Simulated assay, not measured.
Amino acid sequence: MRIVSFGFQTWGRKTLEALLDSGHEVVLAVTHPASAQSYKAIWSDSVEELARERGIPVHLTERADAATIDLVERAEPDVIVVNSWYTWMPPELYTMPTHGTLNLHDSLLPKFTGFSPVLWALISGATEFGLTVHRMDEQLDTGDILVQHSLPIGPTDTGTDLVLAGIELIPGAVREALAAIDSGTAQWRPQDKSQRTYFHKRSERDSRVDWRLSAVETERFVRALSAPYPRAFSYYRGEKVEILTARISEARYGGTAGRVIVQEGGAVVVCGPDAHRGVENGLVLTRVRAADGVAHSAAEFFTRGGYLTDTPQ
Rank of each mutant, 00 (worst) to 15 (best):
L119V: 13
V81R: 12
I42M: 06
I261G: 09
G125F: 08
V72W: 13
H59M: 13
L213H: 06
A290E: 04
I243P: 05
V4N: 01
T61V: 15
I3R: 01
F302L: 02
G130N: 03
M1G: 02
E128H: 11
T127D: 11
A177R: 09
N83D: 01
L146Y: 04
Y307Q: 11
T158A: 07
E25W: 00
H59S: 08
R289W: 09
E138Q: 06
A67T: 15
V222P: 03
E219I: 03
E239P: 01
T311A: 08
G143T: 02
C271M: 14
V47W: 12
E49M: 15
E204A: 04
R205C: 00
E239F: 02
S234Q: 03
L164C: 12
Y307V: 02
E138I: 02
M136V: 04
E17S: 04
A180E: 15
Q195M: 09
V147H: 03
K201A: 08
D161E: 14
G184V: 04
D65K: 13
R54E: 15
P273F: 06
I123D: 03
Q187W: 07
L119T: 11
E138D: 04
H24F: 04
K111Y: 14
T61L: 10
S38F: 10
D192M: 04
W43K: 03
L131P: 06
D106W: 14
E280L: 10
L19Y: 04
T61R: 14
E219N: 14
I3G: 02
R196M: 12
R202P: 01
E217A: 14
L244H: 05
V118F: 06
S5C: 10
A267W: 12
G293R: 05
V147S: 02
A251H: 13
G23E: 01
R231M: 04
S38R: 10
G272Y: 06
A173H: 07
Q195K: 13
S46E: 01
V133F: 02
D65M: 13
I145E: 01
T98A: 15
V270P: 07
A18M: 01
F129P: 01
P33R: 00
P117H: 08
G154D: 08
T309M: 00
R196A: 15
T245I: 11
A34N: 02
F302P: 03
F115I: 02
R220I: 00
T68R: 13
T10R: 02
A186P: 03
C271P: 10
E280G: 08
S214V: 00
P97A: 15
T303P: 07
